[in-house]
Design a protein around this nucleic acid. Structure first.
Length: 209
DNA sequence: TAGGCCATCTGGTCCT
DNA sequence: AGGACCAGATGGCCTA
């Protein structure tokens, strides 16, 4: 649908066609006569035609700009989708725009929450030399997703990411799982296999710099 | 087939 | 004045 002048989605020509179809024959005839008169008048008036052509060209220009703007917006949306933690496999349908935005919002909230938890954890570790079970205390349900966000999300992938349901076996989630739940914290994501070892082997004092 | 999602056009408004 | 942004209208495509 790149052609400016040949778009089938143009609304006003469609309307005209519908109107014409609704007309009685005599009305249609009148309308045709009227259009003929207008056409001949336009032929006589070259200046008016020029202004109409200018108007038309302007309209095409504006349409083109708007289309480009929407393409840019969609490109940005795709960029956002790429960094969102949901399955990217070919069998997975693309997130809708609204779902992408809602998920992005929730993801940011979750990351903020995780960061806070990590800060607490670090202070605990360096304070009491104790690391509690991270994976059991940090899952997305602690992020408290907003009800209206959840209810609007229909994609099983998104819902599974939000902790509403276990992930489909066919979908490879990027999240490390613990007891069927996802742990979003950076520690579990980057080196989950080291977590238990780290917990017992953490130095009693702050690592020297 | 209804409903969701989307692309496009269009006119209005705001901003530079 | 021209461009960016926005929202409404419209119609196409796809899926449950």
């Amino acid at each position: 649908m790149d052609s400016d002048s040949q778009s089938s989605r143009s609304s006003s020509p469609e309307l005209e066609r519908k109107d014409i179809l609704k007309m009685k024959p005599e009305q249609m005839f009148q309308k045709l006569c009227q259009e003929q008169r207008m056409l001949s008048r336009d032929k006589r008036s070259s200046s008016r035609r020029d202004s109409q052509e200018d108007l038309h060209e302007l309209r095409l220009k504006v349409n083109s700009r708007e289309r480009q703007r929407m393409h840019d917006l969609n490109q940005a949306m795709d960029g956002l989708r790429e960094v969102m933690p949901y399955s990217h496999g070919p069998s997975v349908r693309k997130l809708s725009k609204i779902s992408t935005l809602l998920l992005a919002r929730n993801y940011i909230l979750m990351l903020s929450n995780s960061l806070e938890e990590m800060k607490k954890l670090v202070s605990e570790v360096y304070g009491a030399h104790h690391l509690s079970g991270c994976a059991s205390s940090l899952h997305p349900q602690h992020v408290t997703p907003l009800p209206h966000v959840l209810s609007s999300v229909s994609s099983p992938d998104v819902r599974s990411y939000m902790g509403l349901m276990p992930p489909d076996a066919n979908h490879n989630t990027v999240y490390h799982q613990s007891s069927g739940l996802f742990c979003p914290c950076a520690m579990c994501q980057q080196f989950p296999h080291q977590l238990s070892r780290t917990a017992s082997a953490l130095p009693a004092s702050r690592p020297g710099k």
